[in-house]
């Protein structure tokens, strides 16, 4: 069973839809036992980091999430919340990845919105994916490049398209909205 973390952020249903299109079942839950017992956990999110972290802490979900042992996939805001900190509302985050999240400098359009390819990529999520493949991004804040960076993308500057540390995987882009390329990446995660 795939568990999707239920919290005060958008696009949770889009992730459930994408998983179901791939032939997997999922539940949307904030129950610590259900999350801990799932085969895989997806931590999605579109929204604002400060209020999202507050929500997670008030319900103890912050502790539940970092203690997970099975493969976890953070998406977009979910990825940023798994980093050390974000400049968005000056928020301390979960600290799984040793990246800090910053606001793009205003030298081009913000948000970075639309389809972009990879500068570099490595790891199990990218089986069958090439650098020229495009995925869909919507974000104003980016995670810097660190030892956890598994793929990079260039917009204004090179940033982490995805991160990985131990059982934690995360993408800045939205695989659930990235057509067939995104489906391949999601499937690679679901088959870990």
């Amino acid at each position: 069973m795939i568990a999707i973390v239920k919290y005060n952020a958008g696009n949770i249903k889009s992730v459930a839809n994408a998983i179901s299109r791939l032939g997997f079942e999922s539940i949307i839950t904030d129950d610590p036992l259900e999350l801990a017992g799932a085969d895989k956990v997806i931590f999605p999110g579109v929204g604002e980091a400060g209020s999202a972290m507050k929500y997670l802490r008030e319900r103890g979900l912050d502790k539940t999430l970092v203690a997970l042992k099975q493969p976890v996939l953070g998406i977009c805001l979910g990825m940023q919340l798994l980093c050390r900190s974000t400049e968005e509302a000056d928020t301390k985050c979960l600290g799984v990845f040793n990246s800090d999240v910053m606001l793009f400098p205003p030298v081009d359009k913000i948000p970075h919105m639309g389809w972009n390819n990879f500068l570099t990529l490595k790891g199990e999520l990218y089986k069958g994916i090439s650098k020229e493949d495009d995925v869909y991004y919507v974000h104003s804040y980016y995670a810097g490049i660190s030892s956890c960076t598994s793929a990079t993308c260039d917009y204004i500057l090179p940033f982490s398209a995805s991160l990985q540390f131990e059982n934690f995987y995360a993408t800045q882009y939205h695989p659930e909205k990235s057509a067939e390329v995104g489906e391949k990446i999601l499937l690679n995660f679901l088959q870990l």
């Binding site: 179901s20 299109r21 869909y136 909205k177 995104g182 489906e183």
Partner: peptide
């Protein structure tokens, strides 16, 4: 639409 379509 959301159930079927894999782009924004």
């Amino acid at each position: 639409i959301a159930a079927e379509i894999n782009i924004p």
